[in-house]
Write a protein that binds this DNA or RNA. Structure first.
Length: 602
DNA sequence: CAAGGTGGCGCC
DNA sequence: AAAGGGCGCCACCTTG
């Protein structure tokens, strides 16, 4: 047994490192005397479901005592870990979805057993303040929270120690956690401190959750458990198709690249070997050389070379611009989607998305691993990569105009209420009030919910200033309640620095952008509509069918012979009424692939 | 050389 | 009067 003395916020913390099996009785004795623990695991990587993933160590803390178990050394260390997890009545974990999926998959303790007795300090910190560091908030990483709420010096040391060690050992951070010796003293101290921080953070942050948001604590843990179940289940990848798609896109990229080389040589303005079509700077120089001198500016003042410009030039007959655009697209698509799916698949060909249930400052979820929220929807080739399980078909259940319905709820706008009740076309109503096309009316509807003004409409719809002003005025005339709500929320945000959503969530708003308050309120409450739906679907026993939540939609894999009934059942779970507004859902069942919901497989 | 910022583009 | 919200990922480029 080795011990380390560490300092945290003026107190001494004692770390105990279990080195051999002879040390286990002392651990068991200590653990048996407690029921409440901080908990953390050290693992080879963050990819829980990838072949080769291993748990390296597990750490438990209580008060100023903390213990390190070298799980990878012998199954008995893992056994003591699982026994302690089961014996615990209360666990404090930072980003519990990770550690609990690790416990489920690699230590054999189910998510359903541990989540109900866990307080996740990641969740709590987001209920206290949802802003990341770069948004002016305290952030949500362990080091960031420690710095702000516990001990800035300790936070720096913890972050610095691993960084410095990486440098000394010549390792990247990812390699460090895989390769570092469990006997390494600095690693041990780093690992020992984490569960202590989770414990202290839980005690420090829980009282800071605003009263209005306290009821969300249990709710958010339930959502985190459901989304962990969805991640664990995984989404079946059609590997042959995905391989073929990746190859095809790379071939397209190469073909366009050769066209570009020919063009560059023909023009003779620069060495072919030095021209990189993926470099915005290079393309800018080339365009200038070719006589194009008018560029919009990026937010930092650099010349903008985007798709809009390239398309404009291509339409004007510049083949070079067409080539750049097509090459960029093929390369980006190949790397972002099919290649990353293939790299992410587990040994059974399933991709496990990482669902961050409270990622955005509005509480919206984000999905990494499979960037499922950004797959092209106008073209089915990418979604075609994913399949329903054997004997299943794909279904999607989405909310009809979820955010506009929320705008109606929050504003109480009579015209909007009536439109939803009678099934009228809200976009046409705006269009009629302004004397513009439905398409522009629709853009205006969303724009106002995003806090935008007429200038943005000029850009997006490519219409003259006067028409854009007229359209926004038309919206205000059609739905005066929404206009009023936007003004009120902006004022509230400006005055108190934050708004409160109808679900009680406190959202801080930058004073320079107080106008975004209405969007925060709509987006956040809409997220909670979907999240409440997920809980209802879970309680109805439907979680194992769910593959992904995507903002206002849920994707599901359903047994073929009951697909329609199950899709309707999920739809009923998601459907809800708020202040007389019916949040209608639209179940849709297609064939085997996700792409079949977008026109593939016909 | 790794980490972080920026530009660009995919979605709701 | 004017104000487009929220993300993730890739490639490039700068920084330390």
């Amino acid at each position: 047994m080795r011990t380390h003395e560490m300092r945290l916020a003026g107190r001494t913390v004692t770390g105990h490192v279990v080195e051999t099996q002879e040390d286990l009785p002392a651990f068991a004795d200590w653990a048996g005397r407690h029921t409440e623990f901080g908990y953390d695991t050290e693992t080879t990587s963050l990819e829980v479901y990838k072949p080769g993933f291993r748990v390296r160590a597990a750490q438990f803390s209580a008060g100023d005592q903390t213990w390190f178990l070298p799980v990878e050394r012998h199954p008995r260390f893992a056994w003591y870990t699982t026994t302690t997890l089961r014996h615990a009545k209360q666990l404090y974990i930072h980003n519990a979805a990770f550690d609990l999926q690790v416990a489920d998959r690699h230590l054999g303790v189910p998510l359903a057993e541990l989540f109900p007795k866990t307080i996740d300090t990641g969740i709590i910190s987001r209920l206290v303040d949802s802003r990341a560091r770069k948004e002016g908030g305290p952030g949500h990483k362990l080091e960031e929270l420690t710095e702000v709420f516990i001990d800035p010096v300790a936070a720096k040391q913890i972050k610095g120690s691993v960084g410095q060690q990486c440098k000394e050992l010549g390792l990247k951070k990812a390699d460090y956690f895989e390769q570092v010796s469990l006997d390494d003293e600095i690693f041990q101290m780093y690992a020992l401190m984490d569960p202590v921080l989770a414990w202290v953070l839980a005690k420090t942050l829980l009282p800071k959750v605003p009263d209005s948001a306290r009821h969300l604590i249990g709710y958010e843990h339930e959502i985190a458990r459901i989304c962990s179940d969805i991640s664990k289940q995984g989404f079946l990848l059609d590997q042959p198709y995905t391989n073929e798609l990746a190859t095809r896109l790379r071939q397209e990229e190469t073909w366009w690249q050769m066209e570009i080389e020919r063009e560059v040589e023909k023009l003779g303005f620069i060495d072919v070997d030095e021209f990189n079509p993926n470099s915005t700077d290079n393309v800018f120089e080339a365009l200038v050389y070719m006589g194009h001198l008018e560029f919009k500016q990026t937010p930092t003042g650099k010349p903008q070379v985007d798709d809009d410009l390239l398309e404009h030039l291509a339409e004007g007959g510049m083949y070079f611009a067409r080539c750049i655009k097509e090459m960029r697209k093929a390369g980006k698509w190949a790397g972002t989607w099919p290649e990353s799916f293939l790299a992410n698949a587990d040994e059974h060909g399933r991709c496990h998305a990482n669902i961050n249930t409270l990622q955005a400052r509005t509480g919206r979820m984000s999905i990494t691993g499979i960037p499922a929220q950004t797959l092209p929807s106008g073209d089915w080739i990418v979604r075609r990569c994913f399949l329903a399980d054997e004997g299943h078909v794909m279904a999607s259940i989405d909310y009809a105009a979820q955010e506009l319905r929320m705008a109606a709820v929050l504003s109480g706008d009579e015209r909007m209420y009536r439109a939803f009740e009678l099934g009228e076309d809200l976009h046409q109503i705006t269009a009629d009030a302004a004397g513009v096309t439905r398409k522009i009316g629709k853009m205006a509807n969303f724009l106002v919910c995003y806090g935008g003004g007429w200038k943005a409409l000029v850009e997006q719809a490519k219409i003259p200033e006067a028409m854009a002003r007229k359209t926004i005025a038309g919206f205000n005339k059609a739905y005066p309640g929404v206009s009023k709500l936007a003004k009120e929320m902006t004022a509230t945000a400006g005055k108190q620095g934050y708004i409160e959503t109808i679900t009680g969530r406190r959202l801080y708003v930058d004073s320079a952008r107080a106008y975004s308050a209405i969007n925060y309120a709509i987006q956040s409450a809409s997220r909670d509509v979907t999240a409440r739906g997920l809980i209802k679907a879970d309680r109805a026993g439907l979680t194992s069918f769910l593959r992904l939540p995507v903002h206002d939609e849920v994707v599901a894999s359903l047994p073929k012979n009951q697909a329609n009934d199950l899709a309707k059942e999920i739809g009923e779970c998601l459907r809800t009424q708020i202040k007389g507004v019916d949040f209608v859902t639209e179940p849709e069942v297609a064939a085997r692939s996700w792409g079949s919901l977008y026109g593939a497989d016909h």
